[in-house]
C-alpha cells in the first residue's frame, strides 16, 4: 500500500523515471561487459599498436583508443568501476551515517553532543586537500600488509574507504534530525512503555521512518563520488591503469583532445549523464518520499 503510493508519486516525476531507466540500462550494460566483449570478439586489455585511434567499425562500434583497445568495451568496464566506486562509497557512508545519526538522535545527551561535535569537526575540514594527503600516505606504515596495499585494485578500495570516512556526515545529520522527531511519535512512546529494548526500537520502529532522507542523500552521494573519482584521476590519484574508469579515461583523453576528441567525449558524456540521472533520481525520490512536498501539490 505504502509502496504503491510511493510508486505512483514517483511515476509523476517524469525526469526521475527516465533517469532511473537510464541508470538501469547503464548498470546492466556495465554488468554485461564481459558478454559484450565476448560477443564482439575483442578484449578490453587487447593492445594492438597497429590499430591506434581506429574509427568506428563493425568490430569496434566506437572505434579504438590510443593503444588500439576497443573503446566501447573499455567504457563498459570503466562503468563497472565508476559505478561500483560510487555505489559502494555511498552505501558505506550511508551505513556509517545512519548508525551515528540513530545513536545520536535516540540517546541524545552527552553521546549526541559528542557525535555531533565530531560531525561538525569533519564538516569543517577541507575535503579535497585531505583526500590528497590521505591518498598519498603510505598504507604499509599503518600496518596494512604490502600485499593488500599494493594490490591492483587497491586504488579502488582506497577511494571507497576515504569517501566513506568523510562522506557520512550529511546522512548522519539528516538521520539524527529524523530520529529526534520520530522518537516523539506515539508509537515509539508506546513501544518504550511496553518495555521494548533500545535496539529493537531503533531498528524496527525508528529506522523505517528515517530511511527516506537517508535514501535521498545516499543517492546524491553516488553522483558526487563519481565526479570526485574523475577529479582524483585528473590529479593522478584516482583509479590506476590498467583498470579503466570513466574518470581516468577522460583524464587520459584530454591531452589528445585535438586528435581524437571522441575519446574525451564518451567518458565525459557518460559521467555527465550518470551524475545528472542520479541527481534527478534523488530529486524524484525526495518528492515521492516526502509527503509534505507532494501533499501540497
Amino acid at each position: 500500500m505504502r509502496t504503491g503510493r510511493f510508486l505512483r508519486r514517483f511515476a509523476r516525476h517524469r525526469l526521475a523515471v527516465v533517469s532511473a531507466l537510464l541508470l538501469l540500462v547503464l548498470a546492466v550494460a556495465a554488468a554485461a561487459a564481459p558478454w559484450v566483449e565476448h560477443w564482439l570478439g575483442v578484449e578490453a586489455t587487447g593492445i594492438s599498436l597497429l590499430d591506434r585511434f581506429g574509427p568506428p567499425s563493425a568490430l569496434h562500434p566506437l572505434g579504438t583508443d590510443e593503444l588500439g583497445r576497443d573503446v566501447l568495451v573499455r567504457l563498459l568496464y570503466g562503468g563497472r568501476v565508476s559505478l561500483f566506486v560510487g555505489v559502494a562509497a555511498a552505501l558505506a557512508s550511508a551505513v556509517i551515517g545512519t548508525g551515528i545519526g540513530l545513536l545520536a538522535g535516540y540517546f541524545g545527551g552527552r553521546l549526541d553532543d559528542l557525535l555531533m561535535r565530531v560531525t561538525d569537526g569533519l564538516i569543517a575540514l577541507p575535503l579535497l586537500p585531505l583526500l590528497i594527503v590521505l591518498g598519498a600516505i603510505d598504507l604499509t606504515r599503518l600496518g596494512i600488509p604490502p600485499e593488500v596495499a599494493g594490490a591492483e585494485d587497491a586504488s579502488l578500495l582506497r577511494i571507497v574507504v576515504l569517501v566513506a570516512l568523510f562522506g557520512w556526515t550529511t546522512v548522519a545529520r539528516l538521520v539524527r534530525g529524523a530520529t529526534l522527531s520520530a522518537r516523539r511519535r506515539d508509537y515509539v512512546r508506546a513501544a518504550v512503555a511496553m518495555g521494548a529494548g533500545s535496539r529493537r526500537i531503533m531498528l524496527a520502529h525508528i529506522l523505517p521512518n528515517v530511511a527516506a532522507p537517508a535514501v535521498v542523500a545516499t543517492t546524491l552521494t553516488v553522483g558526487n563520488v563519481i565526479l570526485l573519482e574523475s577529479v582524483l584521476s585528473f590529479l593522478g590519484l584516482g583509479i590506476q591503469p590498467p583498470l579503466p574508469s570513466w574518470g581516468n579515461m577522460l583524464t587520459n583523453a584530454q591531452e589528445l583532445v585535438g586528435t581524437a576528441p571522441l575519446l574525451a567525449v564518451w567518458p565525459g558524456l557518460l559521467i555527465f549523464l550518470t551524475v545528472i540521472a542520479v541527481n534527478l533520481l534523488g530529486d524524484g525520490l525526495q518528492d515521492a518520499l516526502d509527503p509534505r512536498v507532494v501533499g501540497k501539490r
Binding site: 525526469l15 553522483g223 565526479l227 574523475s230 577529479v231 585528473f234 574518470g247 577522460l250 583524464t251 584530454q254 583532445v257 574525451a264 565525459g268 559521467i271 555527465f272 549523464l273 551524475v275 545528472i276 541527481n279 534527478l280 530529486d283
Partner: peptide
C-alpha cells in the same frame, strides 16, 4: 521549472576539468 531544474543539475554534473577545457 523543469527546464531550470535540468539546467541546474547539468551544471552540477559536469566534471570540472572537462568543462574548463
Amino acid at each position: 521549472d523543469n527546464a531550470i531544474n535540468l539546467f541546474c543539475f547539468a551544471g552540477i554534473s559536469v566534471p570540472a576539468f572537462w568543462l574548463a577545457l
